[in-house]
Structures are given as structure tokens and as C-alpha cells.
Design a binder for these strands. Structure first.
Lengths: 192, 192
DNA sequence: TGTTAAGTACACCGCCCTGTGTGCTTACCG
DNA sequence: CGGTAAGCACACAGGGCGGTGTACTTAACA
């Protein structure tokens, strides 16, 4: 057992524990939730010793916070930079997420942790505000009458779709997109 | 300690344990969440012995399910029966919930339990569908073009406001109500 | 070659959780 | 009065949890 598998760099498989831990977090926190995933199971899945995990993260709380920070869904990363779309299409593209995408871990973390002071809860707030701000920016480009308001409204639709999909186990994003279309057209029409 | 306080019926305070348990559930599950509320604490708060609790409910799971069944927010109970309002006002009244109201325990339970097969999760689904159906019914009375669609859309707005309020710790229901007004007017205008 | 950083293996601690077992007390009701 | 249903007090089992201590191994690097 001395000869372990080696990675592309020729280094021992053990190296890069932090990334494996975060990878296992993404998988297990999504599949089982945060509270129902123990550190033992998480470390086993990541093929990392528990000791190592607690040298990279001071505790589970910090790991959860970092897990949220790492998570960057398509909403924030690519959608708003697509110049091939009109501003209106860009706003609607935020609702066009593949069904396999894990459902809003920010809401999940805030509900599961149930502590507004928890670092992960604070980051969840920051993230939600950032999304609303981005939507407002795109709304401004699209020529909306009140971009801030429209951004907040669209953000609420995204959260509603996420929550409803989670509870009902049925994709609610098409419904949200339909509402978004009505809102956007209404807001743009108001300026014309 | 033999002379315990007596209730209005003259019966011993010990009687009616089930109601006290459910009352404590409503309080503690809301304040601390389900997973973070232990049966020990819950029984202490309800002034009920643990043994009694487990004679009324086979386990915490059943208690959680019953807690959800008991919870009947204003959305379902009174709003739709108010004949003093126009159908349109009735639809909007669903969004006019007092800020002190505990925030959608159904979403909370579904997220916290993280098990679609859990009795409470199943009831949460049923409840969400029932709300959408009621909204659709009111939408029909209001003369909406597609009542089912409008009902689903309004239900999504309610869930979005609940989720967003929980994460951001800021009342999102006014925003949802504003969107609802646009949707309703748009749906009614389509029929005229 | 020797040092050091990174990781491993594994036992272990204390805590809290759900759930039970046992024996006792009280109130109601025929 | 006596029986019975409801409840109480309390200890305890069994397990999972987050987190730590200790001693060892490996790979990179100077």
C-alpha cells in the first residue's frame, strides 16, 4: 500500500486534500443536506483523513461557509456577460437553468443552519443581494422604468422557483420565467 | 407539590398534554428549527414528561408531521372566505401577512428534513398544491384568462417571498404583492 | 542528506440526540 | 370504594456528532 496512485503532476494522491474536501462537500451537502452529513462520512468520501480536514478548516462551520463561497452557479458567472443576447434575453436567461443544477444551496444553508450570524448565513445574504444587484444592472441596460425594483422582483422569482422546486419536487423555473417575461415587458413598456 | 394548578375545567394541569406538546412545537420549531430542537427541551417547555410525549406520538417524525398539519396560516383559513372583498382584493390579501407571522414552516420542514418520503415533506407538498388550487379558484372568480396558471404563479410568489424573507431577514412580501398586482391585472385584462 | 510540509491511521473524548423501562401519583368515573 | 386512564420522575441505553491527540509516513526541496 506504499505505492499509491499518482496524479498528473506525479505527486502523491494525498496532495490536494482541500479540493477533495470541498468536492465531497458539494456532493454530500447537496444530496443529504448539511446537518445530515457528518464529518466522518465527508472525510471518507473525500478520501482524506479527518485530521487533515481539521487542519484545512477550523471546523464544520468554516467548511460550510467556504462551500457556499466556492459555489458559483451559472446565474452569476456567465449569464450577464453574454453579449450575444439582448438585455431582455439576458434577464430571461437567468431563469433558464438546467434541471440537474443543485437547488440554491444558499436558501438551504440559511434554513438548515437557522442562525443569521453564522458565516454561511451572512454570505448567503451577501450573495442574494449581489444577484439582485446584477439583475438590476441588466434591467437598467434593458431600459426598465425602475431597474432596482425589477431586479428585486426577478430575484424573488428565482428564489420562489428554487424553494418551490425543492418542496414540490417539480421544476418551477418555467413558471418563474413566464412571470419574468410579463414583468420585464411591463417595465420596459412603461418607459416607452 | 401535590396541589397543582388547575385549569378552567377544574382538571389537573397535567391533562391535555398533547395540546401543550403541539404548542411547544409551534414555538420551538419556529424559533430554533426542527433539527435543533431536542425532545428533551421540547418536553420541558411543554411541561410534559418525555414518557407522555412518546405515548401521544410514536416519534419525533410523527410529531413534526402533526405540527405541520396543525399549522394553518391565514392564507388558507380566512382570506378566501371574505365576501367583503372583490375577487381581485382577495387574491392580493393573500400577500398581506403580518410581519410577525412565522415564515412558511412547510418550506422549512422540507429543507430541514431533506427527505421527500418523510410524512411532513409529503404533507408540505399537499399543502402547497392546495394553496395553489385555492389561488386558482379565486383567480377563476376574478375572471382570469388562465386561472390555473395564475394560481401557480401567485403561489410561486408567496414561496419566493417566504424564502427571501428568511434568507435576507427583510420583509419581501410587499415586493411579491406588487408583482402579484401586475400579474392579476395582466391576466384579467387579457379576458376583457 | 536532512528538514519540513502535507497527509495518514485510528483511537478516543464529551456531548447531545432519540427513544425506553420502571415504578409511582393523580384524577376521574362507575 | 376501587379500577383505570393519564401523566410524572428519572435513569439509562445506544448511537451519531464535532473535534482532538498521538504517532507514523511520504514527498518535495534545499
Amino acid at each position: 500500500m506504499t505505492e499509491l496512485e499518482k496524479g498528473p503532476t506525479g505527486r502523491r494522491r494525498g496532495r490536494g486534500a482541500r479540493e477533495r474536501i470541498l468536492g465531497a462537500s458539494r456532493q454530500l451537502f447537496r444530496e443529504q443536506g448539511i446537518n445530515r452529513t457528518g464529518m466522518d462520512q465527508l472525510c471518507a468520501e473525500a478520501q482524506v483523513s479527518k485530521r487533515t480536514a481539521y487542519q484545512h478548516f477550523t471546523g464544520k462551520d468554516e467548511l460550510v461557509a467556504e462551500y457556499l463561497r466556492q459555489f458559483d452557479p451559472a446565474v452569476m458567472s456567465g449569464v450577464f456577460d453574454r453579449t450575444d443576447l439582448t438585455p431582455r434575453e439576458r434577464l430571461l436567461a437567468a431563469f433558464d437553468i438546467p434541471p440537474t443544477t443543485p437547488l440554491c444551496p444558499y436558501i438551504g444553508a440559511a434554513v438548515e443552519l437557522h442562525d443569521p450570524e453564522h458565516p454561511a448565513s451572512q454570505y448567503a445574504r451577501d450573495y442574494k443581494k449581489a444577484v439582485a444587484a446584477r439583475l438590476a444592472g441588466a434591467a437598467r441596460e434593458a431600459g426598465a422604468a425602475d431597474p432596482e425594483q425589477l431586479g428585486e422582483q426577478l430575484a424573488l422569482l428565482l428564489d420562489g422557483a428554487a424553494a418551490r422546486t425543492r418542496v414540490l419536487d417539480a421544476d418551477a423555473f418555467p413558471t418563474a420565467a413566464a412571470v419574468a417575461a410579463v414583468l420585464i415587458d411591463s417595465a420596459i413598456r412603461a418607459t416607452a
